[in-house]
């Protein structure tokens, strides 16, 4: 695993707030959803950073803000030494080539009216990476890389199974030779046996092309499998960040512990103590004061309701935001 590699991406206190407006003609703001509220982390070259959390915790929004598919409200994203939020559109397009995204639902993210060949060729043409017959050669090469055959070029998305469609999505992301790929729940919609194929493919591609992944998912066993480090998000904030084995062996934040204990394990001999969290995730429109987790935390003390815990390195390379540590 790359320990002394250069930092590829640095995210500093990144925020994304969505205003909530009321009224049709005389609109006024009635609130703000703090989808991402101050997250900071680094991703090294060739590393896989896992981002986990429940639905609504802001993990997908974080991915989109990093790529500037959504404009950040505050904070900075430094990719290859360049600050992404301030870039003019022309420059942004150039840098977008090096960062790509794979989406959860491959059926919704592939244009049903374009053949697979056209779809993979499009980014190659836009970025001028190849011309004329070279384009087709490149598309065939990419299809081969993701385990599809060149005959698939003329087919349309509906002719593929879910796993094959996800392969097309991966081929399209690879077409522009990116450095960073943000994968937003890439295997959640797939059957177990197909899921393993796609995960293996992603690992192979990483080794072959030196890719860096940010892997967003809610399935902790998948995230543990693929990631070098894992960040756990809760209501727009990162509550814990550590190496994958450290996080699973020695979770410091009570939320991480609850999340880990909630996973059903496919082993009848492993009976574990389960921490069942009461209630639902609070609304991000009106997050609780102090530590955001205190409403569901069984260790909550007075200080947790008043002061927000600082996100700090508790041990070497193991970060957590909790008053208990």
């Amino acid at each position: 695993m790359p320990d002394n590699q250069a930092v590829l991406l640095e995210v500093k206190d990144l925020k994304k707030h969505f205003p909530v407006n009321k009224g049709i003609i005389f609109t006024h703001q009635v609130g703000v959803v703090k989808a991402v509220d101050g997250i900071s982390f680094e991703v090294k070259q060739g590393e896989t950073l896992g981002l986990v959390g429940e639905s609504g915790c802001g993990k997908s929004t974080a991915g989109r803000v990093i790529l500037r598919l959504l404009e950040p409200s505050a904070g900075d994203v430094i990719f290859l030494g360049v600050s992404v939020p301030g870039l003019p559109v022309q420059e942004l397009r150039k840098i977008r080539r090096t960062m790509q995204m794979i989406f959860q639902d491959p059926y919704a993210s592939l244009n049903p009216r374009m053949s697979v060949g056209e779809m993979i060729a499009e980014p190659i043409k836009i970025h001028g990476l190849a011309k004329g017959p070279e384009v087709e050669k490149r598309v065939k090469e990419l299809l081969h890389v993701v385990g599809l055959s060149p005959q698939h070029m003329g087919r349309y998305p509906h002719e593929f199974s879910g796993g094959q469609r996800q392969r097309v999505g991966i081929a399209r992301a690879l077409a522009v030779e990116p450095k960073l790929i943000i994968c937003d729940e890439p295997v959640s919609a797939l059957d177990v046996s197909i899921q393993a194929q796609v995960i293996n493919l992603m690992e192979d591609l990483q080794a072959e092309f030196g890719l860096t992944y940010i892997f967003i998912a809610h399935d902790l066993s998948v995230v543990k499998h693929i990631s070098d480090r894992v960040a756990v998000m809760y209501l727009g904030k990162i509550v814990e960040l550590a190496r994958y084995d450290e996080l699973y062996k020695n979770p410091l934040h009570p939320y991480t512990r609850a999340l880990l204990s909630a996973i059903p394990v496919p082993d009848t001999r492993a009976r574990r103590e389960r921490i069942v969290l009461a209630g639902d995730v609070p609304s991000p429109l009106n997050p609780p004061p102090g530590c955001r987790f205190h409403t569901r935390c069984s260790y909550a003390k007075d200080i947790c309701c008043r002061e927000e815990p600082e996100f700090r390195a508790v041990q070497d390379g193991h970060w957590a935001a909790c008053h208990l540590n």
């Binding site: 199974s161 796993g163 046996s193 393993a196 194929q197 995960i199 690992e203 543990k224 499998h225 496919p266």
Partner: peptide, 20 residues
């Protein structure tokens, strides 16, 4: 083909090849 939570270290998944 399932990733195991209690697995120590990294290993490769063994998928079922092909599709249903």
């Amino acid at each position: 083909s399932l990733p195991k939570l209690d697995q120590v270290g990294k290993h490769r998944l063994e998928p079922i090849e092909g599709s249903p």
